[in-house]
């Protein structure tokens, strides 16, 4: 167990399953909601999840200690394609956890963005692998003063990238996509929607006709224009449309 920040912890567990960067697992602790979590660390015999305490289930997971049990099923989803030339990896907030394995395996340039220096997570780990890691904070308390997309545009002006990989709040992903369009470069964005089965059967996590759990969670620049619900609306557990803006 690793304390990443005042509200975020990484839990390492023994698990031999093969996992690709960007894939996720369904995590269950008895008596609580089962939730999708990105795999934030991939070793042969161990994997990890990084949990920000925001709801009932995540707060209870934070109470777990070494030796306590959780149930994992998966891995699910497609994951990132790490063969897309010169890449820039962007993590926003706790979404950083989902892109850490991509940084570790590719060594690519990276941005970790957060509201304040206290919210920056996993930067020590990322620095060991990334060729060029930069930090952005909204209040300027650490690294670049501004958001992830502003820093991304600066870095893209310095160097030529072929593809941006990102995970974070949907608004950040939306403007990352817009910036990539303007720059004429590819992007792969890891999306999030309410999930039940996680395995591609119930259809409750769809964006348009794409299942975030199975066709995603990573969508690229060819698919994103077809996702009309991106940064517009999501579905609640009943399947009703809820506006995002």
């Amino acid at each position: 167990m690793i304390e990443e920040s005042y509200d975020t912890k990484t839990f390492v567990f023994g698990w031999n399953e093969e996992v690709r960067p960007g894939q996720f697992v369904m995590v269950w602790v008895p008596g609580l909601d089962e939730i999708p979590m990105s795999v934030s660390g991939i070793n042969a015999r161990t994997k990890s999840i990084t949990v920000k305490a925001i709801g009932e289930a995540t707060r209870k997971i934070h109470e777990l200690g070494v030796g306590d049990r959780i149930r994992i099923r998966g891995p699910y989803g497609n994951g990132f394609d790490l063969s897309r030339g010169e890449m820039l990896v962007v993590g926003g907030g706790v979404g950083t956890a989902a892109v850490i394995p991509a940084i570790v395996q590719s060594g690519a340039d990276a941005i970790i963005a957060a509201r304040t220096k206290d919210d920056v997570i996993m930067d020590d780990l990322a620095r060991r692998y990334s060729k060029d890691l930069r930090i952005a904070t909204d209040d300027g308390s650490m690294g670049f003063h501004g958001n992830a997309v502003q820093l991304m545009k600066e870095m893209a002006a310095e160097k030529r990238y072929d593809c941006v990989l990102a995970c974070g709040p949907e608004v950040m992903l939306y403007f990352t996509y817009k910036a990539c369009q303007d720059l004429g470069i590819g992007c792969q964005l890891s999306m999030e929607r309410y999930m039940k089965c996680g395995a591609g059967i119930c259809g409750c996590c769809v964006m348009d006709d794409m299942r975030v759990c199975k066709d995603g969670p990573v969508f690229d620049e060819r698919q994103i224009p077809l996702l009309t619900e991106f940064w517009k609306s999501k579905r609640d557990p009943c399947g009703r449309i809820v506006s995002l803006r």
């Binding site: 269950w28 909601d33 089962e34 999930m195 039940k196 996680g198 009943c238």
Partner: peptide
């Protein structure tokens, strides 16, 4: 409208 059962449901 019905939310269905709580997770885990699969």
């Amino acid at each position: 409208p019905n939310e269905g059962h709580a997770n885990p449901c699969f």
